[in-house]
Every structure is written in C-alpha cells, then in structure tokens.
C-alpha cells in the first residue's frame, strides 16, 4: 500500500494580478512522504510559484492543493502547514529576521513555543548541519552571501519540518559548501524528510530520485532522475555539466567505451589511446 502523498495538487492554477498568463497552469502533482524531488525548468516556468503554493504562501486561483492532508486554502490551514513545511527562499535577506545568527535560527522554534532546552538543541543541530556553529554569535547581516544562505537554511531546519522546500537555496554556496550541504540533505532525506528542490543546477539534480520539469506553468515531464539523465535533460535545454560534455565527446571518438562512469576519474581510468 502506498502512503498518502504529503503534497497533492489537482488542477492547480495561479495567476499573478495583472499578468497576461498564469504562472502555474493546471498542475496535477503528488509528492509522497520521504521523496526527494527536483523541480526544474527555465526562469519564469512557474517553479518558485509552485513552491510557494506548497507552503500556502500563495493560494491557487483555481484547483486544490492538499498539504499533509489539509486543504491549503481552508481557514487556519496555512499556519498549520507552515509548522510542517519549511520554505527556503532564493534570497536569504528575505528570510533573516534577527540580528544575531543564533537568535535568527531560534526564531522559528521560539514561535512554536518549544521548551528552552529543545530550542537550544534544535539551534545547535541546525548550525552544525549548515556548518555555521562558529558563527553563532556573529551579526546576521555581516555574513557573506553564501553564509546568509546557510543561515536561512539553518532557520528552516530548526523547525524540524516534515517537508523542506528549497528554492535555488544553494545558489550562493561555493562548490565545497554545496557538496557538503547536499550530503547533509541526503542524511535528512534518509531519515524521512521529504525534499522538494527548485534548481537549475544539473549537478544538484543528480542527488534527487525524481525530476519534475516545468515549462510555461505546466508540468511537462515527471519521472525518475535516472531516466532524466539517460538523455531526457538534453531535450529541455539545461546546462550540460563539463563531465557530460567530456563523456559525450570522448565516447563519440572512441576514447572511452559505452558504460564508462561519467566522472573525471572514471573517464581517465578507461581511456584508450
């Protein structure tokens, strides 16, 4: 028996006031508990709008969105939904509320009226997960762009959400920071956290098990990430990572064989000259 989806959309449409066409158009989408799905598409395809609908920040103009079983449009629902579904915005400055790092991370748990010990434990864990422990007493707004982005993530993680929505939330991290953050997301997902990740970066999408492609407000492809990277991604005009460019060129000229692992080490290891 499959478990009930944590997010379930039927015919969801959303139009911004004054916009000529809907940002999200007739979307049907189910996200199951414990899934790690990447939501990809060009700028303006409706990804961020869809993420905001999942968090009840926007109410569909048409259609219904159920989050953890509750109709997101029902009175009182948004507050309940946001206890379980955390959204990390593209721009961390939209999210940082307190002037000291640890106070900012504590803001969410304090609003949940948790005990002092529980708040401290959650703040410690969120700072550790995001690599910010040594900055806990620093001024939030004195942090660099990438550090602020980690702070926004820490604030969301401190809510201990069942579902984490990430809207281009690693765009300011350096490659090592991104890699370590994605590893930690993997750990959280292994412990049951549902992840819906809005991203352009194909090197981030590889971590997700499911890929949902949006184009002009509609879901145009939805499937396993292995199928996506089996060639599907080339159809959608995404940036091709250098590893895959190298793989394609070396394979075409017979320098490597089909089935070679498309990593630098894999390709060097099976190079035939």
């Amino acid at each position: 028996m499959s478990l009930a989806p944590v997010i379930s959309m039927r015919g969801v449409t959303y139009s911004y006031p004054g916009a000529a066409s809907p940002a999200v158009n007739e979307v049907d989408l189910d996200i199951g508990p414990g899934e790690w799905a990447a939501l990809v598409g060009a700028n303006g395809s409706g990804k961020s709008t869809l993420a905001k609908i999942c968090n009840a920040l926007l109410t569909p103009t048409r259609g219904v969105c159920f989050v953890m079983g509750a109709d997101a449009a029902a009175p009182g629902s948004p507050e309940e939904i946001r206890k379980n579904v955390a959204l990390v915005f593209q721009n961390p400055d939209d999210q940082i509320v307190a002037s000291i790092v640890e106070e900012d991370v504590a803001f969410g748990p304090e609003n949940l009226r948790l005990s002092r010990d529980e708040i401290r434990a959650r703040v410690d864990r969120a700072l550790e997960l995001t690599g910010l422990s040594r900055y806990r007493l620093r001024g939030s707004f004195s942090l660099s762009g990438g550090q602020k982005q980690r702070l926004a993530l820490a604030g969301a993680l401190a809510l201990d959400p069942a579902v984490l929505l990430l809207d281009e939330s690693t765009s300011m991290l350096d490659p090592e920071g991104r890699e370590s953050f994605l590893r930690r997301l993997g750990d959280l997902n292994a412990c049951g956290m549902t992840l819906l990740q809005v991203t352009h970066r194909m090197d981030e999408v590889v971590h997700a098990r499911r890929v949902v492609v949006m184009e002009r407000g509609r879901v145009v492809w939805d499937g396993a990430s292995s199928d996506f990277f089996g060639g599907e991604y080339l159809r959608w005009n995404f940036a091709e990572p250098q590893e895959l460019i190298l793989y394609r060129e070396l394979l075409a000229r017979g320098f490597i064989r089909q089935g070679t692992v498309p990593t630098v080490l894999g390709m060097l290891g099976s190079l035939c000259l």
Binding site: A42, N43, E168, S171, M172, F238
Partner: peptide, 13 residues
C-alpha cells in the same frame, strides 16, 4: 556584477 548568474537558467547564463 556581483554573482550575476546565480539563479539563472542555462539560457539566461
């Protein structure tokens, strides 16, 4: 330009 390509899609970049 400070991080001009952050958040842009492939075409945008």
């Amino acid at each position: 330009l400070d991080e001009p390509t952050a958040g842009l899609d492939a075409q945008g970049i």
